[in-house]
C-alpha cells in the first residue's frame, strides 16, 4: 500500500458516494447512465469473487464489500426506487458491444486460464470501458450537471492515481501487472477529453456543456 494507491481508492470511494448522495438528496437520477452503473456492479462482482478465497487485508475486504454494496445500492436506486426519473431515452449505448468483447478478450489474454482468473481479467477489461455509456449520454445531451461532472472527475482521478501507483510499485517493488496496467491506461485515456472540459469549464463555475 502506498499513498497513490490509497488516494486512488479514496477518490473511487468519493466518486461512488457523490453519486449515491446526488441521487438520494435530489430524489432523481437524471443525467446518470444506468448502463454504466450496471457495468460497474458487474465489474465488482466478477473481480471480487475472490473475496473469500484470497485474503489480502482487512482494508481490502472491507473496501470490496463497500464497493459491492454501493454499486448495488446505486443500481437499486436507479432501476427501482427512482425509476421514474431515469433518463433511459438518452441512455442508449449497447451494452453487448462492451460485454462481449470483454468476455472474448478475457478468454484469450489472461494470466492464467482458470475460472476466477478469467473473471478477474474480464472485470479489468469491462471496467476500462464501463464509463462509455455515461460519456456517451453526456455527449448525446450535450451537457452534464456539475454534480455529475464532479462524480466523473473523482472517478477519472481514481484511475489516474492508480497509474501513478503502478509506476511507483514498478520502481519500488518490482511489481507490475501488464493486464491491469494496459487496461488502466485505456480507461484513463477515455477521461482525458472530459478532464479538459472539467478544468476549463466546471472549475470556472460554468456548466459542463459541449461545444455545439
Amino acid at each position: 500500500m502506498n499513498v497513490f494507491r490509497l488516494s486512488g481508492d479514496v477518490a473511487h470511494l468519493i466518486a461512488i458516494i457523490i453519486l449515491l448522495l446526488k441521487i438520494w438528496t435530489s430524489r432523481s437520477c437524471a443525467g446518470i447512465s444506468g448502463k454504466s452503473q450496471i457495468l460497474f456492479a458487474v465489474t465488482f462482482v466478477a473481480r471480487y469473487l475472490d473475496l473469500f478465497t484470497n485474503y489480502v487485508s482487512i482494508y481490502n475486504s472491507v473496501m470490496k464489500i463497500v464497493y459491492l454494496l454501493a454499486s448495488f445500492g446505486t443500481v437499486y436506486l436507479m432501476y427501482m426506487k427512482f425509476k421514474a426519473t431515469y433518463d433511459h431515452n438518452h441512455d442508449t449505448f449497447r451494452l453487448e458491444f462492451l460485454i462481449l468483447p470483454a468476455i472474448a478478450l478475457s478468454l484469450i489474454i489472461n494470466h492464467d486460464f482458470a475460472v476466477i482468473e478469467v473473471f478477474w481479467t474480464f472485470s479489468i477489461y469491462l471496467e476500462s470501458v464501463a464509463i462509455l455509456p455515461q460519456l456517451f449520454m453526456v455527449s448525446k445531451t450535450g451537457e452534464a450537471e456539475s454534480i455529475t461532472s464532479h462524480y466523473l472527475f473523482a472517478l477519472g482521478s481514481y484511475r489516474a492515481l492508480y497509474i501513478v501507483n503502478w509506476i511507483y510499485r514498478y520502481y519500488m517493488e518490482g511489481f507490475y501487472d501488464m493486464i491491469a496496467t494496459l487496461a488502466g491506461i485505456v480507461q484513463t485515456v477515455l477521461y482525458c477529453d472530459f478532464f479538459y472540459l472539467y478544468i476549463t469549464k466546471v472549475l470556472k463555475g460554468k456548466k459542463l456543456q459541449l461545444p455545439a
Partner: peptide, 10 residues
C-alpha cells in the same frame, strides 16, 4: 512474465 498476478489491489 516476470512478476505475475497477486491481485492485492481493488
Amino acid at each position: 512474465i516476470l512478476k505475475s498476478f497477486s491481485h492485492d489491489e481493488l
